[in-house]
């Protein structure tokens, strides 16, 4: 059996699982675990319940850096820029992250994506990201015993994927946020254009922020077009259908990939089948 050189959601989830299992075995701090494709766009992200909210975007940006530079942050920092890495960081508006824990995923000699971890010390981040890379080269799956919030998030995402597959709908991006609007999980199903990742995330954020389904927000607050705090932070405003407020342990579910009406239907039916 050999390894296929395409990065899909299953492989990304396996890599994340390998990282979580490694950090749990070694009693490391909980964090966020991101895998991006060769263009730097999120394929999967998971955040453990007690991990710092800010680690979400740090992990994504690390994976993005490794993907688009096709190099580890360690090499960019120590060999390529030799301490002058802040210049790259400024040039890319703070997104290029030269902090260890960002490594490219190499399969059959090609960079097919990036792996990023944030939440530990730099040595810890690097070790966990390495464990993710090694996880891609393990045939068996890693079993992990994750906390309640992430566990529920995973089962909701599974339910969405099953619903989309069994109804032969277009693949979707899924974001699940906590009650404060910070993502616990982002999955992009194979074949979903990457633009839908941000749409699903803003729908979920909007639902968490107003404790309402995303399309019901305008009924209360009127027609706001712009996000109150701008697009740079986690504050992202989207009042189209597809964001559902759950509000119990986890905050909201955002789905995007089909028409807004269909996305809403996918989200509600997937939650119904779980009795949430």
């Amino acid at each position: 059996m050999s390894l296929n050189n395409t990065l899909n959601l299953n492989l990304a989830r396996k890599i994340i699982n390998a990282m979580i299992s490694f950090s749990m075995d070694n009693n490391m701090l909980p964090g966020s675990y991101a895998v991006t494709d060769s263009g730097g766009h999120v394929v999967a992200l998971e955040r453990r319940d007690s991990a710092l909210p800010a680690t979400v975007d740090l992990a994504i940006d690390k994976a993005w850096t490794a993907s688009v530079m096709k190099l580890s942050a360690k090499v960019l920092d120590q060999v390529i820029t030799r301490g002058e890495g802040w210049r790259l960081n400024v040039k890319y508006h703070g997104r290029m992250t030269l902090i260890h824990g960002a490594i490219p995923l190499i399969i059959q000699g090609e960079v097919v994506g990036g792996i990023g971890h944030s939440g530990e010390s730099i040595e810890g981040d690097e070790k966990i990201a390495q464990a993710g890379f090694a996880g891609a080269y393990r045939e068996e799956e890693f079993e992990t015993n994750v906390e309640k919030g992430l566990e529920i998030s995973r089962s909701i995402a599974e339910s969405v994927i099953n619903y989309v597959n069994s109804n032969k709908l277009k693949p979707v991006a899924i974001t699940i946020t906590d009650v404060n609007g910070w993502p616990l999980l982002i999955y992009r199903m194979d074949g979903t254009p990457y633009g839908f990742v941000e749409i699903s995330r803003s729908r979920a954020w909007t639902s968490s922020a107003f404790k309402l389904n995303s399309h019901e927000v305008t009924k209360i607050v009127g027609e706001i077009i712009e996000c109150p705090n701008g697009e740079d932070s986690n504050e992202r405003f989207n009042t189209s259908q597809g964001g559902i407020y759950i509000g119990n342990i986890i905050g909201s579910l955002g789905v995007a990939g089909n028409s807004p009406e269909e996305d809403y239907k996918i989200a509600t039916n997937s939650l119904k089948s779980l009795n949430i």
Binding site: F22, D25, A131, R138
Partner: peptide, 17 residues
């Protein structure tokens, strides 16, 4: 070595075959 270490939760390293 990784699988043996995992049995004792003693894998603090990673490698690729």
């Amino acid at each position: 070595a990784d699988k043996i270490a995992e049995l004792a939760k003693a894998r603090d390293f990673s490698y690729v075959p």
